[in-house]
Write a protein that binds this DNA or RNA. Structure first.
Lengths: 199, 199
DNA sequence: GTCATTGATATAGTATTGTATGTCAAAAAA
DNA sequence: TTTTTTGACATACAATACTATATCAATGAC
């Protein structure tokens, strides 16, 4: 039943997953029904151009017409450019919004200012660096955790959990990117016993 | 009523015209109704992906997904590559088919073999060189003339006309491309009085 | 274990495209 | 001038996407 645009179908799924978006979330962003997204990804529907464009635009992708003569050149550009971008602006923006929300909620909390400051410091780390591709999933999970947190009142216990989890993510990301910076950083790569939880 | 894909709409028309195809011809090649093509080019319809792909494939264009980050690079490639392609393979192929048909018809003609041979020689010229962009329209007209010719029996009179017309096209193309080869060719560019009809 | 999330389906009604034809005025070719 | 080609448009019917909503099994979070 699938037509000759399998590459668009699979590209949609890949891009969506890469951004850590569920079909329902993409549906909200793009305005295309979740059922339609599911069908399209499985080649069970022949979407209209407007739906397609809405979907891809939401994923920072543009539908472009390429003369067959320069297809290889274009595909090569896309291939070499894509892997460099570690995490999408979209997801980063989403993360920032979540962080803002949670931080606002924290003002009504009677934690010591020092602990809140430490949390901010941890979070600032995510903004300073680029989240490596293999850590996207973890980062996404953390963002969704923040979004869930925001929906409920934050007490001391939840704050503690948030701090721990954020610390864990920071460490994981640091460990993940250290092999690449090995020659540039004085941090040795053999600190494998750093499981998680401490700086 | 138009959505946010005006560039695709206009690109379709441009590509179609560049190949010298009418809406009806493109309709036959692609399998998409002429009415649909007209509506799409005027932004009055939200085509389905299958129709779009069929149309663009027929025009040697591929619908490609480009990350917004490398859009400028891709567009630059397309812009610099496109003008180089003088005439499409599609139109060339169409020309070859038309030539073959007419040549087959000529075997039943009592022209001197010498005249037929001269015609073949003229035609071989079109296959050897690349038709310059500004001669596409003339070439297209000639192809359509051949296609019309094929539908009717060719007598001596028609053969004469064919020969004249083909000669004229050859001369026009030669004149058109001469400025580019000026330094390479010994033929002077100032032979402006060569109106048409003779070698 | 419990609860929420996720992706795949389903159903029913609506809106639009797609198909098959045909018409028409303007432009181009003969 | 006469004929053909071209693009826009019309109409009726069939096919299918779109909308809104819901269900369900599998997975994952807590």
């Amino acid at each position: 039943m699938s037509y000759e645009f399998d590459h668009l179908r699979t590209a949609l799924r890949k891009a969506r997953v890469r951004l850590g978006l569920s079909q329902r979330e993409l549906s909200e962003i793009s305005g295309v029904q979740q059922a339609q997204i599911s069908k399209f990804e499985n080649g069970a529907v022949d979407l209209r151009l407007s739906s397609l464009v809405a979907l891809f635009r939401s994923l920072e992708l543009e539908l472009e017409l390429v003369p067959r003569t320069c297809l290889p050149a274009v595909q090569s550009i896309i291939r070499t450019t894509l892997p460099k971008s570690t995490i999408s602006r979209k997801l980063s923006a989403r993360g920032k919004i979540a962080v803002d929300h949670v931080m606002q909620g924290l003002t009504q909390l009677d934690q010591t200012a020092k602990q809140v400051q430490y949390l901010q410091e941890l979070i600032r780390f995510f903004e300073r660096i680029r989240i490596p591709a293999d850590q996207t999933k973890n980062y996404t999970r953390w963002v969704k955790y923040l979004e869930r947190l925001h929906a409920m009142p934050i007490d001391a216990e939840k704050f503690e959990a948030l701090l721990k989890r954020t610390e864990a993510l920071r460490n994981q990301i640091e460990r993940s990117q250290s092999p690449r910076n090995q020659s540039l950083s004085e941090k040795p790569a053999y600190s494998l016993d750093e499981e998680d939880g401490h700086v």
